[in-house]
Write a protein that binds this DNA or RNA. Structure first.
Lengths: 165, 165
DNA sequence: TTCCAATCGTTTGGATCCGAACAGTAATCC
DNA sequence: GGATTACTGTTCGGATCCAAACGATTGGAA
């Protein structure tokens, strides 16, 4: 059992290392925790729920977005999922090859392409999502309602602040 | 201006879409916010602070880890940064090619390799980190101390819960 | 009408990332 | 002490990811 560094130990070491500089430790620790949490949650959901169905995290997010919004233009999907347009092209190609989504070129504006969940894709989402959500529920299970609400609200603020500039 | 979907609109649409299923909406919204926030913050810091110095997010995290802990075995660095061993090999190669880190094979156990910040790397970190932290501070600036503390604590709990199983 | 700037999705090149397979080294078992 | 097991960092193939360059299309300006 190697002695790995816990989050708390890392924070302590950080403080000692740069003690002489006028830094905002609270901000640093908060964002380090943010990054680690997102990584851990993503990894956990990917390995335990998505991988058995041969789905990628990004691929799942695209399917989920199409499930919620029925049909969307690719530019909006990319922005919603948080990936670049170029990345979406590749992901969509992979999903389309498995008949999970359909590509529907717009007739009004021939530059645009809409994506839509196929019947197979819809079926897959209705099978997977309850399981996915059950795992989500378990992950946040150690937080009480007040903590969860405050955290969610704070995270939303971070999104707005980061994207504002 | 295309009408993109905000986080709140997405949550509302989600609720309507899967209303008939017994789901944990609070958990779903919390983790969606978590993922979006991590992505937004990472993108903002990468574009505004790291890119001008030609540094990758992952590369910066490795440098930062070595800065805090002086020297580390690669397995611990990978675990600390949250990437696989194979990924670290590539990142370390890139950083070593720019003379930002040094590879130091262990004499006791010849399987092990230690990484260490080079003088150039140390200089770079002392230049970049104050700027990095200033941006971090601005990102969390819209949260009061209580919110920030609750959020950080909740995120730590998520890390532990996710990695426990 | 005729440019021309804006915007779409795609392609390209390079870096990142993972899981699995791998060779080398260390530790353990019998 | 010799064989097995465990663990290290590396390599490999395939998918993801981004920024930038690109061709196609649109719509407004001259």
């Amino acid at each position: 059992m190697p002695d790995r560094h816990t989050l708390a130990e890392t924070e302590q070491a950080t403080r000692e290392r740069v003690q002489h500089l006028p830094l905002d430790f609270a901000a640093s620790h908060a964002l380090l925790s943010l990054y680690r949490a997102a990584n851990a949650v993503r990894g956990h959901l990917t390995n335990n729920v998505l991988r058995p169905h041969d789905l990628t995290w990004t691929g799942f997010l695209v399917l989920w977005t199409l499930w919620i919004w029925d049909s969307m233009e690719t530019r909006d999907i990319a922005e919603s999922v948080g990936i670049s347009k170029g990345t979406l092209t590749g992901v969509a190609k992979t999903l389309a090859a498995r008949d999970l989504i359909e590509r529907i070129p717009s007739t009004e504006d021939r530059r645009l392409v809409n994506l839509k969940l196929s019947p197979t894709g819809l079926e897959l989402m209705e099978e997977i999502y309850p399981e996915f959500n059950k795992t989500e529920s378990r992950i946040v299970g150690d937080l009480d309602a007040r903590q969860l609400e405050t955290m969610t609200s704070a995270l939303r603020t971070l999104v707005e602040t980061s994207e504002r500039d």
